[in-house]
Each structure stands twice: as structure tokens, then as C-alpha cells.
Design a binder for these strands. Structure first.
Lengths: 355, 355
DNA sequence: CTCATCGTCTTTAACGATACAGACGCTCAG
DNA sequence: CTGAGCGTCTGTATCGTTAAAGACGATGAG
């Protein structure tokens, strides 16, 4: 069964192709009667309406925007941060009648990068600006938006638009908060984007031969800035950095095992995300330790469940991030294209003065 | 800044456009040296790689598949059933390097139906076969897969492929189970797809002038079959049907308020989804009633959280539904295209013999 | 020497639609 | 009577790419 096109209809009816096209798209360009006859004939011939791809090629717009994830898509649907962000993003897209494409480009999977090239979209949003997929998207010349600041240490800012918080400043507040509470032995739980490096490891900042090495190990800008900020905020405290694997509750819990079961455990722990912080709190409770009383814990993000858990954390406007990311993609005319949103340190019961 | 095309490169280099195309797609069709020169020149000229849309038009394939939701997309990310289904679906798509497009066509929003027409995809999956979006997709001649059986009462089966369970048979088991436990005063909680009808209402089956009216009110095939099955399984019990609004925990809870606060409440309640059943259990506990002991409760779906809640329910293989839906879209050659998966009645503590 | 074969590259023709400019007949003001 | 203006419709070019088949020179077997 061969596909029916506007040309076929035009030929059969003895009108031009343009007239058929107009019957579907610009009713004012032909008489109501002819239009009716064209549409009727179209139905009769089994024409299923203008072809989406051909229309997109000709008009130069797809009205579709992609969201790239550096993880498997199941992460997008299960990670609380991601779900809130995606919800806000999709609400704007829906309201503007635009479609959403989900792309998964796992870290290290260079072959999957072709998905960026092959995506028929008008723009791409991602959570982090320096992930290879976003780099590729910018190379392709597509409008991009990402949700971290994208200012590599001592280098030029990345190209592209963003909606972010000032992760560094927020992290400094976290460090100072703990410092004020008297904590001087602190562990910092970070996730890593590098698949190969799933092994749990602990470093001293000095061992990493400079912060750039931390970034190499971490793989995300925002995490990197948070690490830097916490260290600066803590001043000369005794800090270890635990690279704990993927960003998940399980990783936080695993990091807990590494850090809590020793003779002199840290008095405070900072995780670069609430998800990991909550996992760490699980590990505490498993050992009969009470977060806040026995170990202070700080997270990042302020997820809905963090309030109930009494987790001290940096509140960031996740919904606004998602909403504004969508708006930046949809409105190329908008002038303010690098947006820094406010954050806030929310102090709850998980941090107390050191005993 | 104007877009650079293969044609531009060809002109500058004095080769044919086809050679440029081959340099990107079929390295064996030209000498390694020429290929290298073409690619170098392409970079120099700011060519960003083959245009996705043009390629799709020419090749006739997009390698993208859509998932339609009859709700806002936030539902897709928050409803547990939907999340599990979507996860399984996306895992298959990712493994096969296909992309996913999410479409939202809220019930009643006819304008949003154009999204189906305008989607540049090779196939569409939906949760229910009779929702307008899926009807439109089939009219467009796209391969479709949906996850209910799609057999209207006394009418021809819907066109299109599906992966479903036998909802009617499962519901009969539910009815018989309650019947064996001695329950003769039962309420049936159903959701409705019709936005306008958000009002909570209760009917007797007879009032609805035949089951077709229930279907009109409900708007989903699977729900309809479940209602029919439960009624048949319960035989001559005293049943009321509560149309409780959207499929959500809140709806189940609201239905609880309607049903529990009367002189002679039902001894058992069946909800057409676990989400609603769990909401109903919330309502019970708010009133100091213990599900199982004071009111028997049955759900449908067997969500992860249902086991912990002790909810008697119909287990359906949600992951398999998602996985097979994706596989049907990806493998047009596959012969078995209308798949009925097994279900199982899981009896837990929420159903007990009537006191 | 002939002819089939091979690697390399080109030519031609789509894919299915829409933009743009203009043609045609008609009406109506001047 | 003329020609500007209007509503309708058409012809042609194009969007950027790839499929299919052919051309062309070189190679090598018979």
C-alpha cells in the first residue's frame, strides 16, 4: 500500500498541489466550496493529512525540544530532583503546544552521542552544561539551555544559555554553617559521572593535586563548585572527599559504611545532593546513630522529602529551573539568557553544634 | 548567519553532493583521502553534520516513537503505574537506540489532537486504545500499540496492536473472592477520563441504564471491563458504583468520605486501581477504621507500595507491558501482535471474611 | 586484445510539503 | 471606458538530504 500525497489529490482533482496544501493550512486562500471538496476527496483517497517530516523540513521548525540525560532514562523518572524539574519543564511546553523528546546519552557512551545529531528538534535542554551531549548540541548549532552555571575554573564560560543557582556561594554558606557549629572533622560525599569509577573512594583534598583533579573525578560542574565552596567555607577544617558513585540513595548509604565504621568518624557530613544525604542518614540509623545528635548532615536541593527527614540543606528553586529552561528555549527573543536564581540555606534538625 | 549545507561543501570542493553525503554516511563509497578532506573542509566551513529532518524525510524513518498520555505529563512522571511502564518502555528504546517523544493530549482538548498529526515519529504507544489520541494515530496510519484489550462491548475489536491483561477475567476473580468471603454490600470505585465530571457521584448499576452508560461515564476500556467483571463475579450482591474523578490517591480518599460516613457502609470496596485503593485506605485510617478488619479493600495493578500496605490486588505485569509495547513498535515483523499477559489475584491482609 | 570487474565518483530523481510571486477573471470607483 | 484592487488559484523553486543507477578509468583474467 503506497502513501497518498497532496500531489496525488491535486492530480486527481485537476487543481494545483498548492491548493491542496492551502485546504489544510490556510482556509482563507481558497473558496469554502473547493476546500470542502478537496478535504472530502482527501478522505476518500485515504490521505492521512500533511506529512509531519516534510512539513518540518519545509518550514524549518519542528516545535519539539529535547531533554538530554546523562543517565538511563529510568533515572529521569525516579530521581526526585529530575522529576520535579521535568514536571515544570513539561508544563510550560504543554502550555505552548510544543513536544518533548527524551534523549539518553550515558556518560562514556560515545556512540549514543549520535542521538544528539539525529534529533529533529529546535533546541536541547540538559541538567549540566559540560556533559558531552550538551557540548555536541552546541556544536550542532542548536539553542541549548542547561541548569548549572558552566563556568569552568579559570577558563572561559561555556557557550549557551543557563538557569542556575550560584552553587559556589551556596556551598560556602554550608561550610560556614558547619564551621560556626564547631565542626572541624568533615567528610564530603560527591557523586561521579564516570561509569568506570563506581568504586567508593576517599581522598584528602591535597591528595587530589589541586581542585581540577576533583573536577576530573567528579565530572559535573555543579558538584565541582559545591566541593570548592564547602572547602572554602570550612576554612582549615580536616576534610575528606568521598567519591561515592552515581547520584543515588544507595551511594549515600554506601559512603556511610565507609565513613561511619571507623575509630574517629567525622562529626559532620556534607553530601552534594539530598538524595545522597538521605542515603547517608539511612546508614546512620542502621548503626543506631541519630543524624543531628551523633553526626551532622547537610544536603543540597531541598527535595520534598527532605523537610520530613529534618535535613539541613540548600534550597534551590527546582521548579523555576525547569520552567525557565523551557521558556528560554521557546522564546529566543528573550534577552536575559543566563539566569542566576536565589538559593537559601535551610537549617533543620540534622545539623547541631558539635558535642 | 546562513546555514551551511552539503551542497555548499560540494560546490566549494568541486565534488558532487552525493560524495559529501557519502563521506558522512558510507565511508566505503569514497577514498579515505577524499573523505578526510571533505570532513576537514566541512568543519572549516562550519557545517554541523547532516540535517536530521532532511535525512528523515529522505529515508522515511525517524527512529523516534511517541508515548501519548491523556493527562498532563506531570501525571506520567508521578503515577506509579505510569512510571514503571515508562521505565520498561524506555529501557527497550534506549537499547535499540531509538528516541522517545512524549505527547500530552488531555481528554476533551480537541485542539491538542493536532500534536498527533504533527509528531514526526514511526509509531505511537498509549495506555488505552480508545482514547481519541490513539484513534487519531491509527487514522494517520501510524503503527500503534496500546495496553488494554480494546474490545468494546458487543462491537468489533479496535484496530491496532496491544499488550494487555484480561481485565474482565481478573475482575471476575476479584468479585468471586469477595463473594466467597461473604461480602454482599460492596462499593466499586472507578475513575473517569471526563474532565467535566470531576464531581464525586454514586450510582447503582441499574440506574446507569445498562453497562454501556458506565462506559460512557468512565471513558476507559480497561476500567469498563473491570467494572463489568467485578459485577459478574459478585453475582447478586448489593453494589454501588462511585465515580471518583481522576485516577489518584486523592480521588480514592474522597470516595472514602462518601462511602464510609453513612449508617450502613459497604463491607468491601473495590477500586479499579491500587492508587485509588491506597487513597481509600487513607480515608479508612483517618476514621479509625482498619482496612481488612473493618472494611475489606481490593485494588488493581499491584504497585510496589501495595505489598507494604497489605493490599489485596490483581497483579499485572506492568514492566512486561512497557517492554512488549516497545518491542512491538520496533519489530514490525513480529507476528504475535495482540498479546494477553497473565494476571494473578494476590490476597493480602486487606480482605477478610465479613464479620 | 577483449571484456568483465572493481573502486570511485557523478547524475538524476526523488522524499512531501510550503513560500513566493504572479496570473486570471471580476468588480467598482473615477 | 479604464485600470486598480480583490479573491482565487497556479507554477516554480526550494527545504537538505539520500537512493539508485550509471559513467569512467584502471586492472587483470582469458
Amino acid at each position: 500500500m503506497v502513501k497518498v500525497t497532496q500531489q496525488d489529490i491535486a492530480k486527481v482533482m485537476g487543481v494545483s498541489v498548492m491548493t491542496v496544501s492551502n485546504a489544510f493550512n490556510r482556509p482563507d486562500q481558497l473558496s469554502a466550496d473547493l476546500r470542502r471538496r478537496v478535504l472530502e476527496r482527501a478522505v476518500k483517497m485515504g490521505y492521512t493529512g500533511p506529512d509531519a517530516v516534510a512539513r518540518q523540513l519545509r518550514s524549518g521548525r519542528t516545535n519539539t525540544f529535547a531533554v538530554v540525560f546523562e543517565e538511563r532514562l529510568s533515572y529521569a523518572f525516579s530521581d526526585p530532583f529530575s522529576v520535579v524539574w521535568l514536571t515544570a519543564f513539561s508544563e510550560v511546553m504543554e502550555a505552548r503546544r510544543a513536544s518533548i523528546m527524551l534523549l539518553s546519552v550515558p556518560a562514556g557512551d560515545t556512540e549514543a552521542l549520535s542521538a544528539i545529531q539525529d534529533a529533529a528538534v529546535d533546541g536541547i535542554a540538559g541538567l549540566c552544561g559540560d556533559q558531552p551531549a550538551m557540548v555536541r548540541a552546541r556544536e550542532r548549532g542548536l539553542p541549548t539551555v542547561y541548569c548549572t552555571m558552566g563556568h569552568p575554573l579559570g577558563a572561559e564560560p561555556l557557550a549557551g544559555d543557563y538557569v542556575a543557582i550560584d552553587d559556589y556561594a551556596a556551598a560556602v554558606e554550608v561550610g560556614q554553617h558547619l564551621r560556626r557549629l564547631g565542626h572541624t572533622r568533615v567528610s564530603l560525599l560527591v557523586e561521579t559521572a564516570h561509569r568506570g569509577q563506581a568504586v567508593l573512594r576517599e581522598y584528602r583534598p591535597a591528595e587530589l593535586s589541586g581542585l581540577v583533579a576533583v573536577y576530573d573525578s567528579v565530572g559535573y560542574f555543579d558538584t565541582f563548585h559545591r566541593v570548592r565552596g564547602v572547602l572554602d567555607g570550612l576554612g582549615d577544617a580536616d576534610v575528606t572527599i568521598v567519591v561515592a558513585g552515581a547520584n543515588s540513595r544507595a551511594s549515600g548509604q554506601a559512603a556511610g559504611a565507609l565513613v561511619l565504621d571507623r575509630a574517629l568518624p567525622p562529626t559532620a557530613v556534607v553530601a552534594v545532593s539530598d538524595v545522597m544525604a538521605l542515603g547517608f542518614m539511612d546508614a546512620c540509623r542502621q548503626r543506631g546513630l541519630e543524624p543531628g545528635r551523633d553526626v551532622s548532615v547537610v544536603g543540597f536541593d531541598d527535595l520534598p522529602e527532605s523537610a520530613a527527614a529534618g535535613l539541613t540543606t540548600i534550597h534551590q528553586p527546582v521548579r523555576d529551573k525547569g520552567r525557565l529552561a523551557a521558556e528560554l528555549l521557546l522564546d529566543p527573543e528573550r534577552t536575559e539568557r543566563r539566569i542566576i536564581l536565589p538559593h537559601e540555606l535551610i537549617v533543620r534538625s540534622s545539623t547541631r553544634p558539635v558535642a
